[in-house]
């Protein structure tokens, strides 16, 4: 069975249950899936649970194999994870940090790793930042470096936590079209996004997470409806069709219940 299947994912922080047996639909290779939902809905937690960075109940299967039983080193080859932010205090230069993504888990030759890391930075259009210390980069630049770290091992599954939160418009487009391209090559891409306009434009599938469960899922036009947005976010929303078949979400205000 090709794809990512997460079933019955539950996570508790102490007495508080963040995810309560959450099921995701089968996410197929070639698809970009966006996880959306209000703050504290458990999106990041779900992403970290799938990446096996967070102890959890339930099962995560990638192409049929249970990720919890895959040795750490092999898992690193299968999964690329992009966190919300990189530490801003490190004096490592961008290139070194991407080389570390290659050499920390593997015994890879220096020449090979250096060249591969440089190629990824170039591909993302940040080759000029290669020798800058992370501490000297802006939040958005660090986010691009973080993406480079996530994709440099050429993983089958890409998990990204709010990858566009600090990016300007041009870089948002660059990052999202890179994600599209990577998915097009047969990868599974899952990203947490808050910006529903971006989600509508770039996602094949949106999963709305609310209260520790999957509230709704499907193609953008199926999920981004006034009813569902009112239920999940409590906002009064209009969904308009624009040119080229795109949909646009307009928020009029808070939803008045009843």
């Amino acid at each position: 069975m090709q794809g990512l299947l997460a079933q019955g994912i539950s996570v508790r922080y102490g007495a508080r249950s963040v995810l309560a047996g959450l099921d995701l639909p089968l996410l197929r290779p070639g698809e970009v899936t966006v996880l959306a939902g209000p703050n504290a809905a458990g999106k990041s937690t779900l992403l970290r649970a799938i990446a096996q960075l967070q102890p959890h109940g339930g099962q995560v299967l990638l192409d049929g194999q249970d990720l919890a039983h895959v040795p750490m080193r092999d898992r690193a080859r299968l999964i690329g994870f992009m966190p919300q932010s990189l530490p801003s205090s490190s004096s490592l230069v961008a290139l070194e940090s991407v080389i570390a993504a290659l050499r920390a888990g593997e015994t890879l030759g220096a020449r090979q790793a250096d060249a591969a890391a440089m190629a990824v930075l170039d591909k993302l259009g940040i080759g000029a930042l290669a020798l800058e210390p992370l501490s000297a980069l802006s939040g958005g630049q660090r986010q691009m470096v973080s993406l480079a770290q996530a994709i440099v091992r050429d993983p089958r599954l890409l998990l990204l936590d709010e990858p566009t939160s600090a990016l300007d418009l041009a870089r948002q487009v660059r990052l999202l079209s890179e994600l599209r391209r990577l998915a097009g090559e047969g990868r599974i891409v899952v990203a947490v996004l808050h910006d529903l306009a971006l989600a509508a434009q770039w996602a094949d599938r949106i999963v709305l997470i609310h209260g520790g469960h999957t509230h709704a899922e499907g193609a953008p036009e199926q999920v981004l409806t006034p009813q569902l947005l009112a239920q999940v976010y409590g906002v009064e929303a209009r969904v308009e069709r624009c040119s080229r078949g795109r949909i646009m979400v307009l928020i009029d205000g808070e939803h008045a219940p009843g």
């Binding site: 970290r48 990446a51 096996q52 960075l53 750490m72 080193r73 898992r75 690193a76 080859r77 999964i79 690329g80 994870f81 966190p83 990189l86 530490p87 490190s90 490592l92 070194e96 940090s97 570390a100 993504a101 050499r103 920390a104 888990g105 593997e106 770290q149 996530a150 091992r153």
Partner: peptide, 20 residues
């Protein structure tokens, strides 16, 4: 050395690079 270097990028990053 490389494992420790990776840890400077945060615990999650190091883990996702395959570091125990």
């Amino acid at each position: 050395a490389w494992k420790l270097t990776a840890l400077r990028l945060g615990e999650d990053q190091a883990k996702s690079f395959g570091v125990d």
